[in-house]
């Protein structure tokens, strides 16, 4: 007989005992542990969700703040840029103005200095040239030269234009003082007579004359009447030469001084 009924009952009981034992030691503990872990995981997930939502909220808040900050920063930066540009422009303008003023002052100073220097050089040159000329002419001057000068003077009286002649005639008639004939050397009586005659012929009247000696004329004869003057002297040539040289100098100064911002009229050195 394959089935032993006592064993069947015993095995059934054994099985029921095993069911109880495994429930007690296996299923309940394992299922409880799984449930506890599931609960813990669920609570952790809920907690994580909460934290995530909080983090999202903070993230959004931070982003909005960041955006506002960026906008504010941009506005401030733009404003600062504008202000800096305006300030820079103002400073550049001021610097340009200051530089212009300085340049103008320097220009003026330079011009004044140039002018002074020119004048000094001119004066010095004139003095030197005239000194040399005077010395040379004085060395050359003789009575024969004086005669020649008197002849030239007489000829020039004859070549005088009508306007000058009228002016001098008016001056002679208006003045009560005698007319003056000035020469570098004492004129001999013969030449004085020649000159007197030529004057009387020229102005068609008898003129009261006085002959003066003026060594500074170097050579030549000068006729002065009522504030009007006519004559031919080395000094007047020299004066004309100095005037021309002054003009040349002034022209050179104009080119030398290169005006940057504005043209400044350079005063022309006047001859004495």
């Amino acid at each position: 007989m394959l089935i032993d009924w006592f064993t069947v009952v015993a095995q059934a009981l054994n099985f029921l005992v095993l069911v109880w034992l495994l429930k007690r030691f296996l299923y309940h503990p394992i299922l409880n542990a799984i449930d506890a872990r599931e609960k813990r995981i669920a609570s952790e997930l809920a907690d994580a969700d909460l934290k995530k939502s909080e983090a999202q909220k903070e993230h959004d808040e931070f982003q909005s703040k960041n955006k506002a900050f960026d906008e504010q920063r941009g506005a401030l930066l733009s404003k600062a840029n504008d202000e800096a540009k305006a300030e820079g422009q103002r400073l550049v303008d001021e610097a340009r103005k200051a530089a212009d003023a300085l340049s103008e002052r320097r220009q003026e100073a330079l011009i004044a200095e140039t002018h002074d220097l020119n004048q000094a050089i001119c004066r010095r040159t004139q003095d030197e040239v005239f000194a040399i000329a005077r010395k040379a002419l004085a060395d050359l001057s003789t009575a024969s030269l004086e005669e020649r000068l008197a002849e030239v003077f007489v000829r020039r009286l004859g070549e005088m234009d009508n306007n000058t002649k009228k002016t001098l005639t008016a001056a002679l008639t208006a003045s009560s003082d005698p007319a003056v004939v000035r020469s570098a050397f004492d004129l001999p009586a013969e030449q004085q007579a020649t000159i007197k005659k030529a004057l009387n012929d020229t102005f068609a009247t008898t003129i009261g004359l006085r002959f003066d000696t003026a060594p500074e004329q170097i050579a030549g004869i000068e006729f002065t009447a009522g504030g009007q003057k006519v004559g031919w002297t080395i000094a007047s040539y020299l004066a004309s030469l100095r005037k021309e040289s002054d003009e040349d100098l002034n022209q050179q100064t104009k080119f030398a001084a290169t005006p940057q911002t504005k043209t400044v009229a350079i005063p022309v050195a006047k001859s004495s």
């Binding site: 064993t7 095995q11 054994n14 030691f25 503990p29 394992i30 542990a33 506890a36």
Partner: peptide, 25 residues
């Protein structure tokens, strides 16, 4: 049969008891 069954019951119960003694949650 009965002895082997008891041995199996003992082994299974003891094993379950030992493993589930310190369950980590």
């Amino acid at each position: 049969t009965m002895v082997t069954t008891w041995a199996l019951m003992l082994a299974m119960s003891l094993g379950a008891k030992l493993i589930t003694r310190k369950l980590a949650t």
